[in-house]
Design a protein around this nucleic acid. Sequence first.
DNA 1: AGCTTTTATAGTCATCACGACTATAAAGAG
DNA 2: CTCTTTATAGTCGTGATGACTATAAAAGCT
Lengths: 240, 240
Amino acid sequence: MSMNYDKYAHEPFAVTADLAVLTIRDGVLKVLLVERGQEPYKGHWALPGGFVQPDESAETAARRELAEETGLSDVSGLHLEQLRTYSEPDRDPRMRVVTVAFTALLPHLPEPHGGSDAAQARWVPYDTAGPLAFDHDRILADAHERVGAKLEYTCLATAFCPPEFTLGELQQVYETVWGTALDRPNFRRKVLATPGFVEPVPGAARLTGGRGKPAALYSAGTATALHPPLLRPTPEGRPA
Amino acid sequence: MSMNYDKYAHEPFAVTADLAVLTIRDGVLKVLLVERGQEPYKGHWALPGGFVQPDESAETAARRELAEETGLSDVSGLHLEQLRTYSEPDRDPRMRVVTVAFTALLPHLPEPHGGSDAAQARWVPYDTAGPLAFDHDRILADAHERVGAKLEYTCLATAFCPPEFTLGELQQVYETVWGTALDRPNFRRKVLATPGFVEPVPGAARLTGGRGKPAALYSAGTATALHPPLLRPTPEGRPA
DNA sequence: AGCTTTTATAGTCATCACGACTATAAAGAG
DNA sequence: CTCTTTATAGTCGTGATGACTATAAAAGCT
C-alpha cells in the first residue's frame, strides 16, 4: 500500500515523548520519576514525558521535557538517546497514544526539583521504582538493559560522571549499572589502554577526599566507541 | 507536565510503519522498494510501509505490510526488528507523519511480487537504491548500520540464509553486509567454536552444486547472542 | 586419463587481550 | 607509629584471533 494517504483512512494518534533519566547517586542507580496527579494511575509514579508539539520532533520534545523536569538550564550537552517506540493499542486506557521513549544519562546533580513545572520530580532508586503507570515498567527495564549493553562497547560511562572524575568513580558506574563487582587493576588497565576513553587532567590534580591514597583525576576523552569492547562478566557458563 | 491530556492541546499525528527489508541475492545486498504512484515523490522509489490501524501496534502493522508486500503467506517466523522512529516535523510535506521504522531480514526468495497489493515491489541493490522518497535514504542507511552491528554480537546472519546452508554462504552474508573479505578458515573456526550458532544437518548432507569440494550443510542453531563477538575488521588504525 | 582449477577443511604459530593474582605506594585513623 | 584503606604497578597463564600453510574433494579441461 505504501503510504496512500487519500485512499486509506487513518485515525489520529497522540504522540508523546517519555524519558528514562538515569543517574548514579551514592553508588545507587536512580531514575527520575514524577507522581501522577490525575486518573488514570493517579498517585502512581511514572516516567516524565509529554506531548510532542506540532512543530517539534520527538527528540526536541524529549529535550524540552528533560529541561523542564530537571530544571537544568542547559541540557544541550547531555547524552540523550532514542530508546524505542511503544505503540500497543491499549497502553493508555483513554485514547490511542504512541510514545517515543528516550534515555538520558546524567551525572550526580546538586538536587533535582520540579523545575518550572508544577509536577514533582524525584530521584528514585531503580530497584524500588516499580510498579509504574502505563507500560513504564517495561520502558524503564528496556532503558536499563540498553544502557548496560552500551557500556560494553561505547564510552558512555563518562556521561554518568562529573567533568572530572577518578577511575574508581568510573568503575563504580559499571558496577552499579551491571550489578557486578569488577577487578580494579584490570579495569584500570583496560580503560587506560583504550585511546580517547579518558584523558588525564593536566596539572597532576588529585582527589584526596576520603581515606586512602588520593586518586588521579581524569576527564572524558573524545572517543565514542570501545574497541575491543569491555564485556561484563559472563553471568552463566558462557564460553570465555 | 507528564501526560496531562486535558490541559494541553495536542495535534493529531498520522503514524506509519515503514520497512527496510533486506536480503542477499547473488552475493549482493538488496532492499525491497516500491515505486510511488502519486505525489509527492511520484515515480520515486520508497521503502514499503503504511498506516498503523487503530487496533494495531506498529509491530503488527509492520508485519502485515511485510506480508502484503512480499506476498509471503507466513511471515511469523521472519526476523523483524524495530529500528527507530522518525518524527521530524517536515518529513512529509502534506501532513504530520511519524513513522516507526522496522528492519526485516529475509533469505533469498524465489521472486518477489506485489502480493495482493497493486503497488510494485522490487528488489534493488543497496548501493544503487538512492535517492529515495521522504527521509527513506536515512532510514535505509540506519538499517544497514544496525544490521552490520548486530552481525557482530548476535547470530542474526542465519536469518539471511535458507533453512540449510553452507558455511561459505554464511560467510558471504558477513562479507556482503560489511563489505569486507574474511579469512575462510578463521571464520569457520569462529562459527563452529560458538555453541548454538549453527548445527550440522544430520545424515552428512552435502551441497555439491558448483565447482570444488562439496560443503557440509548446517542449519541455524538456537543461540541468539555471540560471546565473544565476531568483530568486523577494523577499518582504520584502531587498537587490536 | 591426467592435469589444473576451485572450493572446503584441517592445522600451525605468534600475538594479544584478559582474568586472577601479588606487590608497592600514599593517604587517614587509632 | 602502626593499621587500615585505597590507588597504582606489575606478573603469569590461558584463550581468542589474525596470518598463514597444507590437504581433500569435487568440476573442467586437453
